[in-house]
Amino acid sequence: MERQSNREGVKGMLNPTRYGIERVAYWLQRLTGLGLLFYLIGHVIETSAIVNGKVAWDNMLALTQTTEGHIILILVIGMSAYHTVNGIRVMLGHGGIGVGKPGMPDYPYKAASLNYKQRASIWISIALAIIAMLYGAGVLFGD
């Protein structure tokens, strides 16, 4: 008999609340990846406006100079910074670097792979993204 699969689905995959900062980092990595993909598509559309002549190009550029355009660019800066720095952490981890060494587990069984270096790297990624966004906001909204 075919039993109900009871899979959590996308909703469960994207729920960042139950498994600590590592799951939040995973969620942010996915979210920023998707955000950057949409930006890349938008960027291709934006730059392709040049083939329609100078007026079309100037109109498209004018869109990026609005408040909404600036906010989107600030988000792109944050997403790029987080995705890059956290991506380096994840790639090194995928090679087995920084995930701890096998050993005798002792109660209360704290996982060596979820060590302070990993957590610190996640917080550094978030902090760098915030700093980059603040700097970007200063440049875009400054005089």
Binding site: R23, Y26, V90, G93, G100, A111, S113, L114
Partner: peptide, 19 residues
């Protein structure tokens, strides 16, 4: 994708994420 949730819930300290 090294989300680490497996190691978070393991009751025996196996640490699947590391493995």
């Amino acid at each position: 994708h090294f989300a680490g949730s497996c190691s978070k819930v393991c009751p025996k300290g196996v640490d699947p994420a590391m493995g």
